[in-house]
Design a protein around this nucleic acid. Sequence first.
DNA 1: TCCGATGTTCAATGTTTATTGAACTATTGA
DNA 2: TCAATAGTTCAATAAACATTGAACATCGGA
Lengths: 123, 123
Amino acid sequence: MSRIPLHPTREQIELPMVLDCLSDPIRLAIVYQLAQQERVSSELRCGDFSGLGAKSNLAYHFAKLRECGLTQTRIVGTSRMTRLRREDLEARFPGLLDAVIKSAAKDADRLQLLPECEVVDVG
Amino acid sequence: MSRIPLHPTREQIELPMVLDCLSDPIRLAIVYQLAQQERVSSELRCGDFSGLGAKSNLAYHFAKLRECGLTQTRIVGTSRMTRLRREDLEARFPGLLDAVIKSAAKDADRLQLLPECEVVDVG
DNA sequence: TCCGATGTTCAATGTTTATTGAACTATTGA
DNA sequence: TCAATAGTTCAATAAACATTGAACATCGGA
């Protein structure tokens, strides 16, 4: 396991990479879930998304999200807690993330944003 | 040549396809140019973008833009006039296109939005 | 100190993608 | 009718991408 997950700095976040990252249905679902959850808790574990695919596939997608600057990941015990980099994204691309999340919400039934599994029950 | 370019209906426009389409630097440059030009003329010819690549490659990218619902193309003589589907996009994904275009404008120097060629001189 | 849980990394696979040049089609104007 | 122009289609190629299972690493708790 790489001990320290690598993140781009705010200025290193690139528009095409962010758009490409968001264009994958699984990654869009992850971002959407993270956004939905924000009022309750800003972070989620990777394992909370096991309904979206195999472990190794999710690790791949989480790495992409992290490397393009959409998410921040920190290690807590054996888990990885991931949250959206809202402030950095808003600074670089004002209004973009909100527009994407609202668009995803509008199409929540077409996009498979909520697979069979229910995500979390936070105390 | 396909005589009638095919376009998705407004409702057929899908978020992941739009984001994927916008994530390619060449297509982003095309969309950006179309947006910049809108005050002068809402349409541009494919040939106006010859600085962005070979003819056949541009035809490929223009087809992608059209098929995902970002642009509308009509035939005028031997030319194809292309414009952004602003109203349809705004109806489906409010604020999204504007956010992308403004973000691209902010990063205009990183992204190669303006290749060697100057685009158009409209009467 | 070992077990179970959580994720990562690797290799392999099949798919999609972008790019190119050549051949082709359609239209305009001489 | 012919040539020039605008753009499409095709085949080929190389690169990137998503997906899987197996093996591995790390940490917390019994």
